[in-house]
Design a protein around this nucleic acid. Structure first.
Lengths: 227, 227
DNA sequence: TTGCAAATTTTGTGATCACAAATTACCACT
DNA sequence: AGTGGTAATTTGTGATCACAAAATTTGCAA
């Protein structure tokens, strides 16, 4: 569940039952699991028909996601997932390293032992998905892991910013995993869990930062023309 | 001019002549100069009529700005500028301090003497507007100053994030200036200009950070219930 | 005057239509 | 077979309509 939820205010916790909300959730899920191919055009009526609604709510959702830079509206009106560039990749990495450790630290005091256990369970399923090479499951679980932490901060500003960043790099990472697989992936999830159990802010920041660098720094630039 | 422009891709520099784009620019301007009152409802048809268009493009723009957390869509569908809270204020300050110095440093190598002169001219007009107490001019000019720097980085990720932050605190700051005036405002613009002339990254980061703290830290919490 | 309930208006949501621009398909011609 | 241009289709954009939910106003009684 996205924490910086669309179509609803931060202080107003009702999902609503609008078609727009359904479409928004569906498209976000699709982006995060890499079901849209960067550079490939996505059409309004196509999406609408696929989701069984009129083009109307789809139009609003596309504007919404375009504002978060998760979708790109070309000058001719065509919509597509933005293609990754070395420049963008570097900036996303920088922004993640600035924001996510801060957000994790702010969550620390709200995270309880039950959360650590929950995170451990997620991490175990991540290891399994790495073994089977199911990259879509891996991406979903990895996001669950990070946002289960971040969510605890109850953040209204930082969390949406981070959410926007994930929306931007996820589709690209999917193509990377498709090429090189997920077997060589390493993460710092166990260090993070330990830091949460210890209530150690510095260690948690470090674990998150390292995790980001391991995930994006090593694998990520695969196939990108050098900056 | 907003750098993270709406309705157009980053790599695709054409403003287009759509009604949506006009509406978007108009609403953004209104938000940045504080012409919308936080907490006050803004209606679809009202905006549409005021701007001389059908409700259609307005709906898309509202979704767009809601995605950036510049507008809030309540659970009943009503739209308003979010009200400030100590929590939000603190988070915005944190995020600004993390992102803006970084963005400034990245702009440094692209900033030429002509830019320093341009910034000096803006800063002089800022001083004038502070004297006359014209807070709307002050807000516009102060934004021009910061974004003239940030824009130079050619950033596709950090700049939109920062842009979103400004959209979120601007309406509130307007109400603060309305209460306490702008006379007591101090800034670090001259230090920033000097740092740009010297090509001194550390000094520029410091000037930007101090400027943010002076602007928000001292005046900003005015009238907010303590966290 | 005050409190409450019914009626009226306003508002967001979704669908459909009209239109122009862009894309794609097609076919004649060299 | 390759190429150029024209026709057909698809696409985004904007406006209008219908509907239900919400907010506002109105009216009446205590």
């Amino acid at each position: 569940m996205s924490a910086s939820s669309p179509a609803q205010a931060a202080s107003d916790t009702k999902p609503r039952k609008t078609a727009r909300y359904q479409v928004d959730q569906a498209v976000r899920r699709a982006l995060l699991t890499g079901r849209f191919i960067p550079g490939k055009a996505v059409t309004l009526r196509g999406l609408a028909q696929e989701l069984g609604v009129s083009p109307m709510p789809v139009r609003e959702v596309i504007q919404r996601l375009a504002a978060e830079n998760a979708l790109e509206i070309r000058s001719n009106g065509r919509v597509q997932v933005p293609e990754m560039s070395p420049r963008r990749f570097d900036e996303i990495l920088t922004a993640r390293l600035l924001l996510e450790p801060e957000l994790a630290e702010r969550s620390l005091k709200s995270l309880k032992p039950a959360d650590a256990s929950k995170l451990e369970a997620i991490d175990q399923r991540i290891d399994e998905s790495l073994g089977t090479g199911d990259s879509e499951s891996y991406m979903r679980l990895n996001r669950d892991f990070h946002f289960h932490i971040y969510q605890a901060a109850g953040s209204e500003i930082l969390l949406p910013l981070v959410n926007s960043l994930w929306l931007q790099f996820a589709p690209y990472m999917r193509t990377v995993y498709g090429r090189v697989g997920t077997v060589n992936l390493i993460d710092r999830h166990k260090e993070a869990i330990q830091a949460i159990r210890d209530g150690d802010a510095t260690a948690l920041r470090e674990a998150i930062a390292k995790d980001i660098e391991d995930g994006m720094g090593i694998l990520g630039r695969e196939g990108l023309p050098s900056p």
